[in-house]
């Protein structure tokens, strides 16, 4: 399996005569990933033909790509729906998670009062409440139900990480704030919030991918043809035995999930760039 043609990572101590351009660096970073992906696709294609696997079981990548091209408008329409639900739910989770975190850390009694319920919300399987939520919002507003369900899944990591972050301000830094008689607000603004930022961003990354999962699962549960997202495409194509299109929808879903992940990572790198351990990489 070892591929001799792939470059070995260069030792950190090695001197770089020239700083590589952005493009070469991007190629060096994503090159191996893309190469591995292409290799798997090629192997897949060859195996399907070599072993004569039925396209109803495992269609070759060429057929999936063809399906993607043929049904492009339909698939993009479905993606737009799913993406809309996911992004709205994620945004709601970020805002409500941070606000909820603030509320919970306001006072120990507030935390005692609400924290167990937050956990209860988290441990209740979303699939179990989905039918109820769909009934509540009404079948003519299934999108709202899906959004609420995706939000329910994405909310907790955001909340938990915010709470953790707000509580994690260093003792010594708190002494500095006390020494200069900082007000409650100043303490929050200049110490707690920046100290919580790495935690909040980690929460956002987890919750972004959970929003995708939540949105898709909710769509499966809602079913009934009233929704038009990618999950529904998979269900519908399945009943029509259009397996290539199932795969096409699946691929688009994965690519969308990856894009969201990448985006949140970029935001994280941007916000923490110079001060936080996690983003300093080999710079030391």
């Amino acid at each position: 399996m070892a591929d001799e043609s792939l470059p070995l990572p260069r030792a950190r101590t090695g001197k770089l005569v020239e700083r590589p351009s952005r493009l070469t660096r991007a190629l060096r970073e994503s090159g191996p990933t893309v190469a591995a992906g292409l290799a798997v696709l090629a192997l897949w294609e060859i195996s399907v033909h070599a072993f004569g696997i039925s396209k109803f079981v495992l269609p070759p990548p060429s057929m999936i790509i063809a399906s993607m091209i043929r049904d492009f408008p339909y698939l993009m329409h479905a993606l737009a729906f799913t993406a809309g639900i996911t992004i709205a739910a994620f945004a709601a989770a970020v805002v409500s998670g941070i606000l909820g975190g603030l509320l919970l850390t306001l006072h120990r009694d507030v935390e005692r009062m609400l924290w167990p319920y937050a956990i209860a919300l988290q441990v209740t399987p979303m699939v179990a409440i989905a039918p109820l939520v769909i009934i509540w919002v009404g079948l003519d507003r299934v999108w709202l139900g899906l959004m609420i369900l995706a939000w329910l899944v994405a909310f907790f990591p955001m909340l938990a990480n915010t709470v953790q972050g707000l509580k994690s301000a260093d003792r010594g830094l708190q002494d500095v704030m006390s020494l200069y008689q900082a007000s409650r607000w100043q303490r929050f603004r200049h110490l707690q919030l920046p100290a919580a930022l790495p935690y909040i961003l980690t929460g956002a990354r987890i919750s972004s991918s959970l929003a995708v999962i939540g949105g898709v699962v909710a769509e499966f549960v809602a079913g009934s043809g009233s929704s038009t997202g990618l999950a529904w495409v998979i269900v519908e194509s399945g009943t029509m035995l259009d397996v290539p299109r199932m795969f096409a929808a699946l691929f688009i879903l994965s690519i969308f999930g990856l894009a969201i992940w990448r985006l949140t990572s970029m935001v994280q790198a941007r916000l923490l760039s110079r001060w936080h351990e996690s983003e300093l990489g080999g710079e030391r």
Partner: peptide, 28 residues
């Protein structure tokens, strides 16, 4: 600010530059 305190640890805000760290007591 009438009392300055230098702790055992530098206790600097990691997210602030040197300038902004020194500015902090005045900003407060």
């Amino acid at each position: 600010g009438d009392i300055g305190f230098v702790f055992q640890e530098p206790n600097l805000m990691p997210w602030l530059t040197v300038f902004d760290n020194v500015h902090l007591p005045l900003k407060l």
